[in-house]
Structure formats: structure tokens, C-alpha cells
């Protein structure tokens, strides 16, 4: 099944309350790095992006034109409405303070709309934020046990060094770098587009992720895979 992204400039159909957004290099300013979040349709052209942009920087704001989106096939209108309510409440209750971490564990991240994963080393990325909000409502789109734990240390080290962490948080994340799975934004978006009932395995997700990257390039919102290595 081919994945087709839609340009945010064209708006979101009225019947879609919640979609998954993705942006490429024009937003991340980093080679081969995408960014994801939720886009909420308020009607009459009003769209809000809810995303974990950085450490303690969970945003609610206008969706930039650099984004594309997919409809999440697994979201019926009632579930979508429930999640939308959750996102607004989460932003209100956390005041945007959600920790960033390269690790994604099987722990409790939210109680109600309160962030409770406050231990050093705990947190989410933009991609695992999307995964966790869905999981919090009973929607699992990835078979996380199929994701490789190795091969991600370079990216994880780079993120840990860049994050504005306390010493304790820094050391906790250093301890796990290279030993935890990396869930890429394009994988999450690809799985959201494909997942109907069963969580998607890593092997299928990689193909879906390639489709997403190609789609971003088609829409002029990212560079195609064959140009990534030459990205300045």
C-alpha cells in the first residue's frame, strides 16, 4: 500500500478532527531529520499543531506551511475527539513542560492530563510523544518489540549533548544511549497511515518510512533520499 501525504496548505477535510503531521529538513535544519506531531482541525481553516519540539517544549501553536499530514486510519471520530480533548488539557496542565529523552519505555507517562514521568532519563521524542498519546488511549501502531536496539548511538549521543539537561538527566541518558530503540518520525507517520488493527512491525515500517520521505520530497517539503547525503 502506497502512502500519500497531503499538503497542509490544502487544509484538512472537515470530517477529520485529528491527523499526524510531519515536516522535513526545512523545519529541522538537520540532515535526514524529520519532525512530527499532531495537527488538530478546529474548523473553518483553523489548525493547531501539538508537538514536542524540544526538552520541556511541548507546543500548541499554528501549523506552519512546511508541514504535510496523513490521516491516521486507526482513529475513528470518537477516539479522535477524545485525544483532541486530551491534548488541549495536557498542554494546559503541563504548561508545555514535557521532558525530552531518547528512551521510550513501557512506563506510565501521563495520569489524566498530568505528566508523571519525571525521573532523570525519562521523557519522549517528537515521535514517541505521538506514539505515547495514542497508546494512552488504547491505540498501538508500532510493534515496539521488533525495533532494533542498536545502530542509533551516534544520533542519540548527538541529541543528548544538544539537550539542555541537568547533570543528573544528562548522566541518566548517557547510560542508555546506544541501547534503546530509535523511533523515527517518518516511521511513526508511515505506521499511522497504514495501521488498521495490528501494530506494524519494523520491517514494514521501514518501507512505509521510505514512502513518507519520498512524499515529503514530492511536496517540496524535504529532500529525496538520494540527495540526503549531499545535504550541506
Amino acid at each position: 500500500m502506497t502512502i500519500r501525504l497531503q499538503d497542509i496548505k490544502e487544509g484538512i477535510p472537515d470530517e477529520v478532527a485529528l491527523a499526524i503531521a510531519i515536516a522535513g529538513e526545512p523545519v529541522t535544519h538537520a540532515v535526514n531529520q524529520r519532525h512530527t506531531g499532531f495537527v488538530v482541525n478546529g474548523g473553518e481553516g483553523q489548525l493547531w499543531l501539538f508537538d514536542l519540539a524540544w526538552h520541556n517544549h511541548f507546543r500548541k501553536g499554528n501549523t506552519g506551511l512546511e508541514y504535510a499530514f496523513v490521516r491516521a486510519e486507526c482513529l475513528d471520530e470518537i477516539t479522535a475527539a477524545t485525544i483532541v480533548g486530551f491534548l488541549f488539557a495536557l498542554h494546559d496542565d503541563t504548561k508545555g513542560k514535557i521532558q525530552y529523552s531518547v528512551a521510550y519505555d513501557d512506563i506510565r507517562y501521563f495520569d489524566g492530563a498530568k505528566w508523571v514521568a519525571g525521573e532523570p532519563g525519562q521523557g519522549l521524542t517528537c515521535a514517541t510523544f505521538v506514539l505515547e498519546v495514542l497508546r494512552h488511549h488504547g491505540i498501538e501502531i508500532l510493534a515496539t518489540e521488533t525495533w532494533p536496539r542498536d545502530g542509533n548511538q551516534e544520533w542519540q549521543d548527538r541529541m543528548i549533548l544538544a539537550l539542555p539537561l541537568t547533570s543528573e538527566e544528562f548522566l541518566a541518558q548517557c547510560d542508555i544511549s546506544g541501547q534503546v530503540a530509535r523511533y523515527r518520525p517518518e516511521e511513526v507517520v508511515g505506521c499511522a497511515a497504514l495501521c488498521l488493527f495490528e501494530p506494524i512491525t519494523y520491517e514494514v515500517a521501514r518501507g512505509a518510512a521510505d514512502d513518507v520521505v519520498l512524499e515529503l520530497a514530492r511536496l517540496g517539503k524535504g529532500h529525496p533520499p538520494d540527495r540526503v547525503s549531499r545535504w550541506p
Binding site: 478532527a17 482541525n41 483532541v84 480533548g85 488541549f88
Partner: peptide
């Protein structure tokens, strides 16, 4: 005040609202 955003933010629900 706390919940209204939920009401208007779903499904482009101008007609529902």
C-alpha cells in the same frame, strides 16, 4: 472555560457547534 476548546476543536464541527 477549561473544556470549550474541546468542543470547538473537533472534526471541524462548525455545524455541530
Amino acid at each position: 472555560k477549561r473544556g470549550c476548546v474541546d468542543f470547538i476543536s473537533n472534526g471541524g464541527t462548525a455545524h455541530v457547534a
